[in-house]
Design a binder for these strands. Structure first.
Lengths: 172, 172
DNA sequence: CGCAACATGTAAGCGGTTACATGATTAC
DNA sequence: GTAATCATGTAACCGCTTACATGTTGCG
């Protein structure tokens, strides 16, 4: 999903600044997209110029230059339209997948190291989950719970599968 | 993983044409990347100009203009280098995830329709798996088996989870 | 004969990543 | 005071996607 739609979607939960949005995306584990400020600020500017969002407040708690955006009615209906048209594919891609596919070109030591590292990171990740206590979404909507739970289930499956089938990665 | 590395990686299993590579990627369910010819041919041209791959045969079985590429020793070591340097993240993204996250903006009917469609597609997908009888990889390497099995396990988890927690998607 | 699959490529445009650039506020 | 975090933005580049363009081979 492209940056503009994600920003618009997140703003449908409540008002936020570009910084807030970035934090929220990060804290939900880069679930549906990962990005830097270089994507978010231009996206907000574009949405704003189309009238899909607007500035609500500019200073909000002692901090300098804080630009808080709010979705407009036009923005909300445009978002609904886009989502209704979408044909969302569930194609799971991962850099880890890709690397393991070509792991015959890796030394056994390096491969062991990578798998151990990733396994540890995933275990930590699966535990950490649900610290998504962002200011957007006070009571966490049930759909966000659905997605977070699914993400966790997928992580757990990956961990279990990798442990059980690790032998397949050894040189034959 | 970028198009060039994927092409180089696939050619490490054996010689192939651009068309073959596309077919192989498709038949493995767009596992680590999905692309059209518009990515593959330029990638092959770039790899070729750097000496990482080379043309082996030009006609191979009655077909016109068939350009079969082969990885060079330089290409193989360059690929090893790239793979060894990589820090592969296992970040699972899916358009379906994203849409469901914002599903409060969808009508109940449309949501039901989308979930049913995706579920059916995933079930079909999980069954079809392992028709990857491409000319590359005669005896399927065990790493390819690992990755294909993991993909299947993740699909099955998604199907089960969606069935079990579908209620969370209903309007509250 | 016509259609599907085989087969390769180019060019424009779009969008995201990366690096750069700046400055305020808070906590130690 | 100084480092980390808060906070926003710009510009260049890179690479992928999409659409276009073309021609062959084999099957029914």
């Amino acid at each position: 999903m492209d940056a503009k739609t994600v920003c618009l979607g997140l703003l449908s939960f409540g008002e936020a600044s570009g910084y807030d949005l970035k934090k929220h995306v990060e804290s939900s584990g880069d679930l549906f997209f990962a990005t830097g400020f270089g994507s978010i600020y231009p996206a907000l500017a574009a949405l704003s110029s189309k009238g899909l969002i607007e500035r609500s407040r500019t200073t909000g708690g002692g901090r300098r230059d804080r630009k808080v955006y709010r979705i407009t009615p036009t923005g909300r209906s445009e978002l609904s339209r886009r989502l209704a048209m979408a044909e969302p594919r569930h194609t799971l891609r991962s850099e880890l997948f890709a690397l393991l596919y070509f792991s015959h070109l890796l030394s056994t030591d390096r491969l062991t190291q990578i798998v151990d590292e990733r396994l540890a990171a995933m275990i930590a990740d699966a535990r950490t989950e649900d610290l998504t206590e962002s200011s957007l979404m006070h009571p966490k909507p049930s759909r966000a719970q659905f997605v977070a739970g699914l993400r966790r289930a997928l992580l757990e499956t990956t961990i279990r599968y990798t442990r059980d089938h690790r032998k397949l990665l050894e040189p034959s």
